[in-house]
Design a protein around this nucleic acid. Structure first.
Lengths: 222, 222
DNA sequence: TTCTTATTTAAGTAGGTACTTGAATAAGAA
DNA sequence: TTCTTATTCAAGTACCTACTTAAATAAGAA
């Protein structure tokens, strides 16, 4: 007990979990899995990688204890191992953001200019929901909506917003949300709706943050 | 804006911070830096690595935005870049611990059996401090005590406990603390004191957790 | 049974990482 | 100035990682 070799082994094991997060593709997988469970082929499509490569990344997450999997017929569904993983991912983002400069530039390069974009916080949305004068739009892909969404939200995946405009109730303000701060679905939806003359706003954060705050969640009957 | 290449670059940058933590030696450095700033040679001695290798690890932490450094004469002192890093490190530990099994075994192998060890929580210690019937012992190395400690604590580094027994006031219960749950200094101090017939207890957590909880801290006049 | 689809495994390669050793800086002391 | 000490840099090597392609499983459908 207490010798250097064992100490090194302990810290190596802790570092294993960090290594699992230490790859851009796996970080994306964690971000997506934060929305709910997904199959390997869906995940491969999301991160634009081959099935083989995606499978290997997922198994790395499995081994590190960040993800878990279940088989259903011919498909295998992966999900985050515990809420602690969600906290770890958020802490990593906050740390990287505090290291001002580089990451900010990359976010700006990917996300573009959000200056003209109307945004509201979670607390504001809660208030408006109680008043009952907003329509909430979940613009993430359908499977993520089905795995869990803000109660009362309508599922209109980003790619369908334009064609399904008529389904969105008129008259009240629209609040769109997606995966989180690094997700553009809600941004684009708000821009599109605004162009159509609707009053639309983006929720600052995404579904995982809503869930992590302990707020109520609705699941689709399957 | 919004293309795959930029998205990959953004997540690669986030993964960079995780990669920096993804090495046992650097994880140890982060754990030690959580106690306060230290010079390169002190850190090299702590992790039992060469100066060159330690320096390279520290520069990796620097580049990733997890650490920062300042020069003072011929020495360069490294410290954590922000409290967010401390949160990240804690989240990583919690995640790894949730992945029951392997890590538990490694902790047990390094830490040994804590069953016979008397422990108190932070809240209990706060209560006892208010009652004024405890002596608090900081058994970490002197530089860590100087960089910040629990108010009123006496600095008796682990290696000196045996020879400096007389300095520890008799009559009241002793509470020893160190770096945190993976640190053995307080364990050993409590065993030693108990063998000498003193009433000694270990603080469950360490100094970084005390600091993170926003509790008061005392610094040595230098 | 054979066929199909989803996933994993195996093998190979280019590039990255963690150490080592020895030389180069950089600040202060003599 | 030279000497000393703390730190960094440079170059080399053994090992590890992220991807590729092609073959192997594994479950369900026909």
């Amino acid at each position: 007990m207490g010798d250097q070799q064992e100490k090194d082994a302990l810290f190596d094991a802790l570092a294993e979990a960090a290594k699992a997060l230490g790859n851009g593709r796996r970080a994306q997988l964690i971000d997506i899995l934060g929305q709910g469970e997904r199959s390997v082929d869906e995940l491969a499509a999301e991160i634009h990688q081959s099935m083989a490569n995606t499978s290997q990344h997922l198994q790395r997450l499995l081994r590190a204890g960040l993800a878990c999997s279940r088989r259903s017929g011919t498909r295998i569904y992966y999900s985050l191992a515990s809420p602690a993983v969600e906290r770890l991912w958020r802490a990593l983002r906050e740390t990287a953001e505090a290291h001002s400069g580089e990451l900010g530039d990359l976010v700006r390069a990917y996300v573009g200019d959000r200056d003209g974009l109307s945004m509201i916080t979670r607390d504001e949305l809660l208030l408006r929901l109680r008043q009952g004068d907003v329509v909430v739009l979940d613009v993430r892909p359908q499977p993520e909506y089905e795995a869990g969404h803000i109660p009362g939200a309508l599922s209109v995946p980003f790619s369908d917003v334009k064609s399904r405009l008529r389904e969105v109730p008129q008259g009240s303000e629209i609040v769109a949300y997606c995966r989180g701060p690094y997700c553009l679905y809600a941004d684009e939806a708000v821009r599109l709706l605004t162009d159509e003359g609707r009053l639309a706003t983006r929720l600052e954060e995404g579904f995982p943050e809503w869930k992590a705050a302990g707020l109520p969640i609705e699941h689709s009957a399957t």
